[in-house]
Write a protein that binds this DNA or RNA. Structure first.
Lengths: 244, 244
DNA sequence: CGTTGAGTTGACCATCGTCAACAGGAGTGG
DNA sequence: CCACTCCTGTTGACGATGGTCAACTCAACG
C-alpha cells in the first residue's frame, strides 16, 4: 500500500534573524520558557534567534546532525518520518508554544517543514544543552514536555491502531480544536492549514478516504467544510466519535 | 567488572517485599539507576521494594491515581489503553531495565499487566519524586528514557499507520530480537511470552491476521514457529521487511 | 484561456476483518 | 485411563472497510 512519495522542496528559508524579545512573547507561558524567571530569561534571550520560515520550507531533516532546537512561536510545523519507498507518517503537528528538540539524540529523529509561514526561536543545541545543565527546573520543564508528548504519542497509537476512518477524522478535528483553544481561545471553527495529504499521512489513511469522510460528515450535518478549515456543527456527535 | 550476573534465581511469592540489593541488580546498567553513584544507590535502595507479580496480574490500571513507579527487573509487562467499547491498543511491552512511570501525571496513562512472572522495583511516587528533585543527573537520565520512549512511540506510529500486516509482524519480531539482545545477548530465537491477541493489539491487527501472517512467513521459510516464540530462519528477508 | 495542483467523486478491488469450524494441550473428574 | 471442558491458536469462506486508479471540478496563476 505504498503512498504517494513526498516530493521535498528544499527551499532555503530567508533566515530573517530579528532581535528576540521574550518578555513580549505571546506563547511564553505555554512554552518551555515558562520555567524561567525574568533574569534567566535574559540569558536564554541572548542565545535565541528569532527565525521566520517561508511556507513549505524545511526546518530540519531526519538523520541530519541535530545542531539546533526550536521553540515555535507562530504558524504550524509538520513533523514526519519517511520510509525508504516514500511512504510517509506524520508524527505530529507543532503549534505555537511547542518545542522541537525532544525526540532526538545526536541526529533528528524526524523531519520538520513549515506549513504556512512559521516563526520560531532557534537555539544552538550546545548552548541550550549547557543552560539546561545549569537550570534543573528548566530540565524539569523539558521533561514535563517530553512526558506530555509521550501521552499524545500513545493516544495517537490508539487512533492509528484501533479506530475507523470516521473516528480518526473526528478525533483529529476535536483534538486540533482543543489545541487551538489553548492558544487562541475556544471556537467551533477549526483551522486546517495543512493539506489533505498531510491529514491522511497523520491518520494513516489516503487522501481520498479523508476527503470522502469529510464529505460524509458534512452530508450528515456534523461539520461544514469551509475554506482552510471546518466548522463543527454537531459538536456532541463529533465528540462522541472522538471519545478519547 | 560491572557484569557478574548472579545465577541465583530466587522465586518469591506475590507481593513478598524482599530486601532489595541494587549492587547485584542484573539490569542496573540498563536502567535509570545507572545514573547513580554507589552511595546514592543506597538512598534509592532504601526506598525500593522488590515485588513479584504472578502471571496475568495487574500492576496498575489506567486512570488510577499514580502513587508508584516501577523498574522492571525480570519478565515482561504489557502496557495498554482501552477504548470505552473494549477495543484495546497495546502501547508497549516493558522488558527488564524498563521504567514505568514516565507517561503519567497524577493518574496512570495506561494499564499494565504482568505477562509471565514479573519482578520489579517499586518506589512510592512521592519519595521517588523527592529524590529526583535532589539529583539532577537522575532527572537527566529519566529525561533520556522519556526521549527514548518517544522515539519508540514515533516508530510505532509509522508501523501502525503505514505498514502492511507482513511488515508489521516482521518489524515486531526484529524489534523484539534487538531488545532481548541488549538484555540476554544476541539470538535468532525470539521469545514470545505474550499471546497472539497481545501481538494483534500491539500491531493494530486481529488475532487471525497475526496467525495467518506468521503461518505465511513460516511457509516461506523466513521463520520457524516454535513453542512460545519463533526462530528467525531468513534473517536478511525479515530485516528487509522490517526496514526501520 | 491554457496549465497546474489541490480536492472531490465514482468504479473497482485487495487487504484485512468477521464469523465459524476445527485442532491440540492443559486441567478436571469419573 | 478416558471423557470432558476450556483455552489458545490455526485455517477457511466470505465480506466490508478503506485503497487504487481515473475522471472531473475549481481556483490560482501565467
Amino acid at each position: 500500500m505504498p503512498n504517494s512519495p513526498v516530493k521535498l522542496e528544499v527551499r532555503r528559508s530567508a533566515c530573517c534573524q530579528a532581535k528576540t524579545n521574550c518578555a513580549d512573547c505571546k506563547v511564553r507561558l505555554l512554552s518551555v520558557c515558562a520555567a524561567l524567571e525574568s533574569d534567566e530569561l535574559c540569558v536564554l534571550e541572548a542565545l535565541a534567534k528569532t527565525i521566520d520560515f517561508e511556507p513549505k520550507t524545511n526546518l530540519f531533516m531526519q538523520e541530519q546532525p541535530a545542531d539546533a532546537v526550536y521553540n515555535v512561536t507562530e504558524g504550524m510545523v509538520r513533523l514526519y518520518k519517511l520510509l525508504p519507498d516514500g511512504r510517509r507518517q506524520i508524527v505530529g503537528f507543532a503549534l505555537p508554544g511547542d518545542f522541537l528538540g525532544l525526540a532526538m539524540d545526536d541526529h533528528y529523529g524526524f523531519s520538520a517543514d513549515a506549513i504556512g509561514t512559521v516563526t520560531a526561536c532557534r537555539f544552538s543545541r550546545e548552548a541550550f544543552s549547557n543552560i539546561v545543565d545549569e537550570k534543573p527546573h528548566l530540565l524539569r520543564r523539558l521533561h514535563e514536555f517530553a512526558t506530555h508528548e509521550l501521552h499524545l504519542a500513545q493516544d495517537q497509537m490508539v487512533m492509528l491502531g484501533r479506530r475507523t476512518a470516521e473516528e480518526k477524522v473526528a478525533s483529529f478535528l476535536i483534538g486540533l480544536r482543543d489545541r487551538w483553544a489553548r492558544i487562541s481561545g475556544a471556537s467551533v471553527t477549526v483551522s486546517l492549514p495543512m493539506s489533505r495529504q498531510d491529514i491522511a499521512d497523520f491518520l494513516g489513511l489516503t487522501i481520498e478516504t479523508v476527503s470522502r469522510t469529510l464529505s460524509q460528515l458534512a452530508r450528515d450535518k456534523a461539520i461544514l467544510v469551509v475554506p482552510d478549515g471546518v466548522r463543527l456543527m454537531d459538536v456532541a456527535r463529533m465528540e462522541a466519535l472522538a471519545q478519547v
